[in-house]
């Protein structure tokens, strides 16, 4: 490269480093790359991903069709699965992702997408298996994915197993309130009360927790406990700085106490 060009490029550096293009500018970028390297399979797959994000379904499909001709066709199938899932074509998505998984066994993102695709296709048992594999292979599974797995099990009519999944996730990630709350919704009787009390420990027995817990106590027939926890919450709220959320919560608690 000559000095003039190098100097010119250097002057662009600040602007380049500042740039974090969105979908449309990234698409323009890939257009240029593909023009210069038209045989690079990965570029078409990347562009298909961007087209999918932008809901350019046909353009995405065209890129994936091209990508299949430029290497192992299965390399395009992760993105193909994502595209099909986005278009609510769950069964074909499962097939594409399964092909990809024959090439990249236990690929975490492919397992997660196939779990969602199986679920959308109504094949809950297969979805369950993929979620299990995904979570097992993730070093630090995201709470949002564990919750989705438990919802599949619940849809299968297996609340006990769903509860077990949540308990396992709690053991890995700690007393995370969303997992505890989901577990609480599934549990019955004493277990539900115990989970509610664990949630209280995790949240510091907040007034918002008290409102939920009062409902748990009522279902367990512990009316005095329900009233006591609400009264404590009301007293807490009276001393705390007023936020819109706390004002609304206090109204709900007072209504419960009056009722």
């Amino acid at each position: 490269m000559n000095h003039a060009l190098a100097g010119m490029l250097l002057t662009l550096s600040a602007a380049l480093a500042a740039a974090h293009p969105g979908v449309h500018t990234a698409l323009a970028r890939l257009d240029a790359q593909i023009r210069s390297q038209p045989d690079q399979q990965v570029l078409y797959i990347r562009r298909a991903a961007l087209h999918t994000q932008a809901s350019h379904w046909q353009a995405a499909q065209n890129d994936l069709d091209t990508a299949r001709t430029l290497g192992d066709a299965r390399e395009a199938d992760l993105q193909q699965g994502d595209l099909l899932l986005a278009r609510n074509q769950a069964e074909p998505a499962v097939q594409a992702l399964s092909r990809y998984l024959t090439l990249h066994t236990d690929h975490p993102q492919a397992l997660l997408l196939r779990a969602r695709a199986h679920s959308a296709a109504g094949n809950l048992a297969a979805s369950r298996a993929d979620y299990a594999r995904h979570l097992q292979r993730s070093a630090a599974p995201h709470p949002g994915d564990a919750l989705a797995y438990s919802r599949v099990l619940l849809d299968m009519g297996q609340p006990a197993q769903a509860l077990q999944v949540l308990e396992n996730s709690l053991r890995r990630s700690g007393e995370q309130p969303q997992l505890l709350r989901a577990a609480m919704a599934l549990a019955q009787g004493t277990t539900r009360v115990q989970l509610g009390e664990r949630l209280g420990d995790a949240l510091g027995h907040t007034p918002a927790w008290a409102l939920d817990m009062a409902g748990v106590y009522v279902q367990a027939g512990r009316m005095d406990d329900a009233r006591a926890v609400l009264q404590r919450a009301d007293a807490q709220l009276a001393t705390q700085r007023q936020t819109p959320a706390r004002q609304a919560l206090r109204q709900r608690i007072l209504e419960k106490l009056r009722g």
């Binding site: 970028r29 240029a32 210069s36």
Partner: peptide, 27 residues
Amino acid sequence: LLNVCLFRPMPRCASGPIMMPIGGVSE
């Protein structure tokens, strides 16, 4: 990878994009 010609057209861009790796574009 980023095509620097998208930032500023340069004579050399006429013969094709000038590609460079750049951070910060992961989605």
